[in-house]
Simulated scan of single mutants.
Amino acid sequence: MLTIKQKLLKSTQLIAISTVLGVTGTLDAVASDESYKFNLALESGDRDSASGKSMMMWKELIEKNSDGRMKVNIFYQGELGGQQELFDQLVKGNIQMMLTWPQTSYDERLAVNYIPYLTLGWDDALKAYGEDGWLKNILGPVYSDIGLHYFGPYPEGFGGIATKGKYATSFEAAEGMKVRSQPVFPLPQTMKAMGFQAVPIDWAEVYTAIQTGVVDGDSSNVIYWDYQYFRDQLDYFVHSKHNFSSYALLMNNETWEELDAEDKQIVSDAAQAVIDKQFIDAKAEDEKWIKAAQDSGMEYIVPTTEEMAGWVKRVRADVWPMAEETLGKELMDKIRENASVPQ
Rank of each mutant, 00 (worst) to 15 (best):
K264I: 07
A209M: 06
D276M: 06
A16P: 00
N73V: 02
A284Q: 08
N65S: 11
A292K: 14
G160Q: 01
S105K: 14
Y76V: 06
N73S: 13
G160C: 01
P321T: 08
F237Y: 15
G45H: 09
D260G: 12
Q197E: 15
G159I: 04
L27V: 07
D107L: 07
M191L: 14
D232L: 06
E205D: 14
K241I: 00
Q343I: 10
L99G: 08
Y224M: 03
Q77S: 13
K164T: 09
Y224L: 05
R231W: 06
V302G: 00
F196C: 03
V112M: 13
W134T: 09
M55L: 15
S66H: 02
W289L: 02
Y36A: 07
E262W: 00
Q6V: 02
I4N: 13
D260R: 05
A309L: 11
I146F: 01
T24Y: 00
I95N: 01
Q96R: 12
M332K: 07
A248W: 01
S340G: 08
I290A: 04
D281L: 09
L40C: 15
G297N: 04
T163N: 01
A198V: 02
S144I: 00
F158V: 06
F230C: 06
M98C: 09
N65P: 02
H149Y: 11
E257A: 11
I280E: 15
L42C: 10
K313Q: 15
G165E: 07
R109P: 01
K164M: 06
D132S: 12
P102G: 11
G176C: 07
V20T: 12
N252G: 08
D276W: 04
G147Y: 03
T19N: 14
F158A: 03
A128W: 01
M298Y: 04
A292L: 14
E79Q: 15
Q211H: 11
M70V: 09
T208V: 06
K127M: 08
S268D: 14
T305D: 15
T326M: 10
V302P: 00
G45W: 04
W225E: 12
L259P: 00
D48Q: 12
V30R: 13
A282H: 02
K10C: 03
G147I: 05
F230A: 12
N39M: 11
K334M: 15
Q103L: 02
K288N: 13
A270Y: 04
L234S: 08
K53E: 15
A284T: 10
K92F: 00
R314C: 06
M56W: 00
D226R: 05
M56R: 11
V199C: 04
L14S: 13
D48S: 14
D263Y: 09
S340E: 08
L80I: 10
E43R: 05
Y76S: 07
E262D: 13
G297T: 08
K178L: 03
L126G: 02
N113A: 13
S105F: 09
I275G: 11
Q265E: 15
S268W: 08
F151C: 11
M56N: 08
E108S: 14
M98E: 10
